[in-house]
Design a protein around this nucleic acid. Structure first.
Lengths: 328, 328
DNA sequence: TATTTCTACTAAAACGTATTAGTAAAGATA
DNA sequence: TATCTTTACTAATACGTTTTAGTAGAAATA
């Protein structure tokens, strides 16, 4: 069905080179006559020739594809982020090979291997833990790498992120400013650097103000029913709590489900979320949050990656995107 | 850095064929001696050989990649759906090339062309309007195609979907059962078949019960501020409304934002959404909905597609997945 | 001992493209 | 008219793999 250059060349009684050169707009520099050029062009159009991009990539070494590795393409941060990335790259004639790690390093490693085999021209990565070796592998393969959202300090890469510590501090100050004197922190039981930074800023705030630190760490892979129950009982035990600061929006949603379920009417204090959610502004009471500006984040990632692809790998830099405090 | 089979063969003083055969576990059937096999295997391991999957695909005609084309990877239906698909295919050693059309046929066409050029082994597609020709093109290229969520009746393909009409009817009956006597329908101004089916079931219900039909159709690409205002004023005008049925969850969210904004306290009647949302069960009052079971949907799509890939293209069938009515 | 059968490989072609060096014919130069 | 340029192409090689047909030498057969 789909014709190859070879077939087209035979049918036109010219060489493959001629056809290839014409197709790639190199007729002029290869001194192909206008007439022949037209003849080829017309025929190519007529039979609806479509190049086999595998063969093309093999020959040129360019796949026009970049890899995007996120934690979960289905969540409300990475999904829309991915959409932005795709849109930005579409304009530059790149396409995106996505994959979700679900936080599992084994998945992440498989995905990276696969992408390297597919010869992606660059990788945008939100790393899991224990991914240092594979990140190095990417760089050893001379594939540009931009890490975002979180990083592994032990391996030097371009790193696009928000200032977690500062944002977390802003959150604390906000809660203080609206009158909370004893707010707790709900976070996740993981040593991801961005989570640590959020927690540490809270601890720092406690130290400065003398507020007693109250922290609940939930295990990452038990977030549904068990998490809801654990959270509820923890809050019940800490009777003097007058506010909660969640270090991610899915934790906040968990918190909502936990505290708003039957019998939870008396848990009536402000909640604050790290990361926004499309429904936070219609809940009652409304939920204030730190908002990560997705578009600037995506833009920076894409810009940095494309620069690396164009001009070769340069020494790693850090790009900090400032967050918004949304008061509701 | 990355060695090729050719280099490995030279360094071991054997032929490329030998190396290739060993790597692909065909040493036995090609009568390669155990010793040589070991020698090759060890060396391959030692130098960390990784195949170039472009070359491999070119030679074998298999890319181990399938294309997934959705409307918006960032939304709360397609995002989690995509995750399921990815997980299911990962197990079968397939990878996913995603893309979002944003409802634009031009995007959709470009994406399809790109995927055909990339030689995906199958395509999972949620079509936009005016995509008939390109769907045919996919089939002409002998690439298995499974359409889901919506379809174009003019082109015969495998089609996995929920029963929109029946589900919509269930929704109406539910609203009736909780006492609504005059509920309106908010839908989108589009002739996507699944939207028509939802609307028509409502009209049918009106006819049967004698309820007066009240329908607001919002233009798809003006869903933000303008939509909110339009919806608010429409509801204000229809003073006897005592319930609203939204044909998608994003319309429902729009509705929430519209009716719950300042001064909207008196709009206090049940809302019903087609498609669930993670926060619908903690809003007050809770929002009932039709839930599309993502996992069965994804499973069916993947199963049908893989079967096509394995055993060649078969005559199109329709697969209807039943929905759940979630009463809250 | 001449022929057949195994064994253990390898040579060669193929997948579909890009690219560079080369070439035959025509025209220009001296 | 012998040499140099230019024109308009094409042949050949490469990219990295898979696969099939082939082959040299050893072993078995008759």
């Amino acid at each position: 069905m789909a014709k190859s250059i070879k077939e087209i060349a035979q049918e036109l009684n010219v060489s493959k080179s001629t056809v290839s050169l014409v197709i790639n707009h190199k007729a002029e520099q290869a001194r192909i006559s206008k007439e022949l050029e037209r003849r080829v062009l017309d025929y190519v159009e007529k039979v609806g020739y479509k190049p086999n991009s595998l063969a093309k990539s093999l020959a040129t070494g360019r796949s026009n594809t970049i890899g995007l590795i996120v934690e979960n393409i289905g969540d409300s941060f990475f999904g829309p982020f991915a959409l932005h990335v795709e849109e930005l790259l579409r304009k530059k004639n790149y396409h995106v090979l996505y994959s979700s790690t679900l936080g599992d390093p084994q998945n992440a490693q498989d995905i990276i291997d696969f992408m390297l085999e597919k010869k992606v021209e660059g990788i945008l990565l939100a790393p899991t833990v224990n991914l240092e070796e594979h990140q190095r592998k990417i760089l050893e393969n001379k594939v540009p790498l931009v890490v975002f959202d979180r990083n592994s300090p032990e391996v030097a890469t371009h790193y696009v992120h928000i200032d977690n510590g500062d944002s977390s501090r802003k959150a604390c100050l906000h809660l203080q400013s609206i009158g909370c004197k004893n707010f707790g922190l709900i976070t996740i039981d993981s040593d991801q650097p961005q989570m640590l930074a959020r927690k540490n800023a809270y601890l720092q705030f406690c130290e400065e103000t003398g507020m007693q630190a109250r922290i609940l760490q939930l295990p990452y892979n038990r977030l549904r029913q068990k998490g809801i129950a654990a959270l509820r009982s923890w809050v019940s035990k800490n009777v003097d709590l007058d506010g909660l600061f969640f270090t991610t929006n899915y934790l906040c949603i968990l918190g909502l489900k936990s505290l708003r379920s039957e019998g939870g009417e008396h848990f009536n204090f402000p909640l604050f979320s790290f990361d926004d959610h499309e429904l936070f502004d219609i809940l009652n009471p409304k939920i204030s949050c730190i908002q990560q500006p997705l578009e600037p984040l995506a833009k920076t990632c894409v810009k940095v990656l494309l620069k690396e692809i164009d001009s070769g790998i340069t020494s790693p830099k850090e790009y900090v995107i400032s967050t918004n405090l949304i008061k509701r």
